[in-house]
């Protein structure tokens, strides 16, 4: 994969107004992630790592500072453009899976294609291939409630990669899983990285973080440590 910055943050800060007090979740993040990197975001709870992931995924905008995704300053992109960006360039994996409970595995996986106006036939085909890729061939018709935790997370990963995004963002993807299953999920993410995807994983589990080739530690809204292992 070609190197070069995929994500670039300069002085990014994020404040929330909760009731009367303002919470400063991020205070001046400078960060550059190149294409093809596998980054782990670590830190104690409340350190701001999830907030940072949300900003990276364009789910929320920085209160201050600049964030460029693939060279484009995010704050200049209109709302519909951000939606398109989220749908086409970014794949999300959440700790609590966030599958729609009444849709089958196949329908969950194809959801991003629905909003790209992809035809039903192609949608089905690509969703089937994605489920195959995460080892869920033959489970297409199951509802999330009929799947184990690990299988649900695989469906979520299939959904994240269905648009062949440049960036996969995972927030505690193994947090709700046992160690063995968590290991399988991490192996899957590592495999995606090996295929050239840029992956950013939020975790507080050191063993999970070991899979990444770059580990960022966040404390009190700042990057406290930035170590590359490879």
């Amino acid at each position: 994969m070609s190197a070069g910055p995929l994500l670039e943050l300069q002085g990014v800060a994020k404040r929330y107004a909760t009731g009367r007090t303002a919470v400063e979740a991020l205070r001046g993040i400078d960060l550059r992630v190149d294409r093809g990197e596998f980054v782990a975001l670590m830190g104690p709870s409340g350190s701001g790592k999830t907030t940072l992931l949300e900003i990276l995924g364009c789910l929320s905008l920085p209160s201050e500072g600049r964030y460029s995704l693939a060279g484009r300053p995010v704050e200049e992109i209109p709302a519909d453009g951000l939606a398109k960006l989220r749908g086409e360039e970014i794949g999300f994996v959440f700790q609590s899976f966030n599958l729609l409970p009444r849709l089958s595995a196949l329908e969950n996986a194809e959801l991003p294609l629905v909003y790209r106006r992809v035809g039903r036939g192609e949608r089905r085909e690509r969703a089937r291939a994605a489920l195959e890729r995460v080892g869920l061939g033959g489970r297409e018709r199951h509802l999330p409630g009929e799947l184990s935790g690990g299988e649900r997370q695989r469906v979520a990963i299939a959904r994240a990669l269905i648009n062949r995004p440049r960036l996969i963002l995972a927030d505690e993807p193994t947090g709700n899983l046992d160690t063995t299953t968590g290991g399988e999920i991490m192996a899957l993410l590592a495999g995606l990285h090996a295929e050239g995807n840029t992956v950013v994983v939020v975790t507080h589990d050191a063993r999970v973080a070991e899979r990444a080739d770059r580990r960022l530690t966040i404390r009190d809204g700042r990057i406290a440590e930035d170590r590359s292992t490879h």
Partner: peptide, 16 residues
């Protein structure tokens, strides 16, 4: 809300 949030996250526009 969660379902709507997820749809927004995977590319739905507000008008969708």
């Amino acid at each position: 809300r969660r379902e709507i949030g997820l749809r927004l996250a995977v590319g739905a526009r507000r008008r969708d």
